[in-house]
Design a binder for these strands. Structure first.
Lengths: 204, 204, 204, 204
DNA sequence: TATGAATGAGTTTTCATTCAT
DNA sequence: TATGAATGAAAACTCATTCAT
């Protein structure tokens, strides 16, 4: 009985993900407000009503896409970053994880970078929960770097984290909006170079 | 006759701006898609139909807010930046102008940072027109700095411009979303410090 | 004073007719319900509000076009028909007058044949007033013909009048709707031939 | 499975017809442009939105009423007329079919005779498709009659067909507009008498 | 669980008409 | 008389959501 339930759970979870991917695709193409739930259903190959067996309503689809992607990213970050010792390499790896997720899941990325920003309500919630978590990881990297004497101690770690997020998020948005698919991951090294060393010449 | 016309033109332009500010306020509060045109009209103190004497439709309101703000910013940037000689100070001034506009026109800023991003169509147009113009200004600053030996010559100026925009735009978005109104302009100096000098210690 | 008034009356009446012709043109092109009063005003070369100095409202424009054209036709019919002696020629002349008016004023004819039919209310009023008048003229021709032994006495004159109107009106509608401008007046003679002599061969 | 589908198809088609009849009733009473879709829905006993599951839009309702009635008439005409031998009786039967349909479906007839005429666009399409079909049937009757020596050979069959249509259509319009319900079918014989024999006495 | 027909609330937009100038 | 900016009522249509099967 337990096994059977777990199988059913697996099937349920699988169909949930199918719907979620369909929603990401549809939202990415048409924009959240112009997208129709029936488009999502058709794309997922199910009936309209079935969507509501897995999600509360249309908005739940949107936020679930977000939680799903954010969860994926944060769990990878939290397992991979601590293994690395050099804080400069931690930053580089963090950026690589961020960009490679964006690049791999373009539909999700469009929703993430564009559609999710529509709602002040959502963004306010986001910035106090998920984003706080994201910034915390960065902040700890910076603080560790400062303790080790690798990063300038007079810098505000919180601010550095925000700047880093701003850069990554901004570049992701630009990549999503430009049709030419220059690899995003390839831009990590030059970007990290600026972030680590600044734009000025000698620093003497 | 000429004078009379100019007065009428002035009145027309004035009312247009009243409607635009009302739209910014309403869109900022409710989000573009949830906002009703009649809310905009009521906020502007006019009848619903009057909105359509000044704007083609609801979307025209949205994009007009954008053109208006962007025009204001770019004209200030293009008149003030060339006066400054040191490229590092040019960058600082650019950031100050960006942030002070955001701070002064919070409603417009919310529309700008959040609502306008909803439409892939719009964003694609934006990134090939206005944004290109914006990035061009930054790029020229960087190139000038490189010619003068102030900025590292091996950096890709286009990339540096994108990174700078990413930082400014990202910080603006964060400020807009956080209700606590820490001054945004006050963050210019520490941010520019990182951008100019990097986060690493000696750079030796 | 009297003369001056009469001149002003003339100017007033003239402008009324300009507006009426503009309305006929616009209604003919777009259909009454899709036509805008401001289109009529622009076509007449006046301001929107001015229309309302000459006509009660939009519907008044429509019915005035009708009265104008119908009045023109009926006055010609009533002055020309009595002069003719042979009732068969009276019928022919009647048809010629009807068709030549249609042909000369195509815009008015379109309104007359198509747009005016939209309103049951109007058509009911029409069929008990103007149409009754029109049918009366025909009926008197038929009755005269019967008295003179030219038309079969067993025919119901009222019915004959209706049939005649049906033919004229139907052919007018068809002409208006077919773009090829075969002359409508040219069809009078063959049509009258059928009406007078029937379609069957010998009548023996 | 096949049976079940056919039942569902039947239900669908049945509901379509209910809506169509409701639309005819409402359009007949208020006129197409003044009629509200919600009136049609209420008359049909369904929700407003349901109308749009069966018809593209309001205009689709109008033209569908037409196709429905015209199809009904033409199929009866094409099956019944060929059976009759005497061309004079063919004409009489054709007129009877036309008038009895009008009389039986008064709402549809009003839409047909009045409302459908509003749109030049529609009427132009009508006169080149359905009407052409209708006239063709009449024309063939006349040509057959001429070959058999029953109808005068010098008459233009196309013109005779148009005249016949003009009479039938005109009388139908008049009947629809006059509230007194003198039977329309009863007028067939005297009308056909005129059409066959003309109004003049001897034809000698 | 899955379906999809039915619902009906909700909003943009148009345009006839008014009225201060 | 003439103007034309402003009004605001009114309706077609969409689509998220429900629920009987």
């Amino acid at each position: 009985m337990e096994r059977r339930e777990s199988i059913e759970e697996g099937a349920r979870s699988e169909r949930r993900e199918i719907i979620l991917r369909a929603a990401a695709k549809v939202f990415a193409r048409s924009g959240y407000f112009n997208a129709k739930v029936s488009d999502v259903a058709r794309t997922a190959g199910i009936a309209d009503g079935t969507v509501y067996l897995y999600f509360r309503n249309k908005e739940d689809l949107l936020t679930s896409i977000f939680s799903w992607a954010m969860g994926e990213f944060m769990s990878r970050a939290k397992s991979e970053i601590p293994v690395i010792i050099d804080p400069r390499e931690k930053l580089r790896r963090f950026a690589q994880l961020h960009f490679s997720l964006i690049e791999r899941e373009r539909d999700v990325a469009i929703v993430f970078q564009i559609e999710l920003r529509h709602s002040t309500k959502f963004m306010e919630k986001f910035s106090t929960t998920y984003l706080a978590d994201y910034l915390q990881v960065l902040r700890e990297i910076v603080e560790a770097g400062q303790r080790e004497g690798k990063f300038r101690s007079q810098l505000n770690p919180k601010l550095v984290a925000k700047v880093m997020f701003g850069i990554l998020d901004g570049m992701a948005t630009n990549w999503v909006l430009s049709r030419k698919s220059n690899s995003l991951v390839m831009m990590v090294d030059p970007m990290i170079d600026i972030f680590l060393n600044g734009v000025t010449t000698s620093n003497a």
